Simulated scan of single mutants.
Amino acid sequence: MNEQRIVNGLSVDVEDWFQVGAFEKTISRDDWDSLQLRVGDNVARILDLFDAAGVRATFFTLGWVAERNKPAMRAIVERGHELASHGYDHTRVFTFTPDEFAADIAKARAILEDAGGVEISGYRAPSFSIDQRNPWAHNVLAEHGYAYSSSVAPVVHDHYGWREAPRFAFDPVPGSDLVEIPVTTAIFRGKRLAAGGGGFFRVLPYGFSRWAIRQVNSREKRPAIFYFHPWEVDPDQPRVADAPLRSRLRHYTNLSRMEGKLSDLLGEFAWGRMDELAAIEKARSMAWAA
């Protein structure tokens, strides 16, 4: 049952199996072109899954991937979804200078717009890497005319997190058109819990995500922001045997169950594109300001 018809934000972070943060110290970027590309076929599976559920979503895509998978980019757009930026090659934003970040998002945007034939107005930082160390990144995005970012995880995590950030959409650059839409968290006994998808959705029981989204929709009357990756619906992907045990457990657990859990989630709640949600959230913030 859709919770009070609140439309939640559905998103896919489009990167291939070897580009994830868990393997960044194991697999060199110099080796990427020698590895098996599987993201195109996995995007096709996800598009079919979304069609079957009758939902539309946003695909935050690496420029590196778009360069090598132009048919997939066109398919995303032609089937009614939003194509948005995930940066060029999954470099974490807090490792950039402002000028380097500006160059990265400009490069990725040009590639994505060429591949998809549409204007790119949304951005998600790799590994939610806009936090208290680099709030200047929002200024750079605003200067480059982005309508929204979904780059903040307002939790504590070993790979990312901005604990003090607002849990829901906020204006990170006063006076600009940019709105930041953090990934979803839920509250349990006064503590914030990551509840926006990814590995948490795949590893934990489905009931946890149901509870969290219902809390956000019903109690707080706000949309949830959910994400996952194409490699998460690919149980036959290559194994990285020399990666740390923790990274392998995090990456490979429950891959075979992911597609079924997604089908349940898509059927139980209402979902839509992030650009449409961003417009609603921006209007909400303007109404509050007035």
Results as ranks from 00 to 15, higher is better:
A287M: 11
R222N: 11
A243I: 10
N139Y: 04
F18T: 01
I27V: 15
L193Y: 09
A279R: 15
I280C: 05
R124Q: 05
R56P: 05
D236Y: 03
V240C: 15
W162I: 00
R273T: 00
R248Y: 04
N8D: 09
Y146F: 15
A243K: 10
N254Y: 08
I105A: 05
V152F: 00
K107E: 11
E259F: 01
E82L: 07
A106N: 08
A57L: 09
R163G: 01
E276H: 06
D114C: 11
G9C: 13
L249Y: 05
V14T: 04
R5S: 13
D177Q: 09
R29C: 07
K107R: 14
L249T: 04
D264M: 03
D48H: 13
A194T: 09
A153V: 00
D264I: 01
V14S: 02
R29K: 15
V156A: 04
H251P: 00
R124S: 12
G80L: 03
G175S: 08
I120V: 15
A224R: 02
F96W: 12
Q215C: 07
L49R: 13
L178K: 02
T91M: 12
K191L: 13
P126N: 10
F59R: 12
A270D: 14
T58L: 10
G197N: 06
D234W: 07
S85N: 07
A108N: 09
D33K: 06
R167H: 02
V173M: 07
A72W: 05
A137Y: 03
N42D: 15
S176G: 10
I27G: 07
M73I: 11
D177E: 14
F94I: 06
F200P: 01
G175K: 12
A186Y: 00
E15A: 11
N69H: 12
L83I: 08
V43Y: 08
N254L: 05
N134L: 03
Y146C: 11
Y88W: 12
A115H: 08
K191Q: 10
D41Y: 03
G198Y: 09
Y123K: 08
A279S: 15
D99A: 15
V55Q: 06
I76S: 07
V140Y: 07
L249W: 12
A153N: 00
A125L: 05
G260V: 01
V7I: 15
S151H: 00
V12I: 15
I111Y: 05
Y206D: 03
D131H: 01
V39H: 07
M286Y: 03
E100K: 11
S127F: 04
S256Q: 14
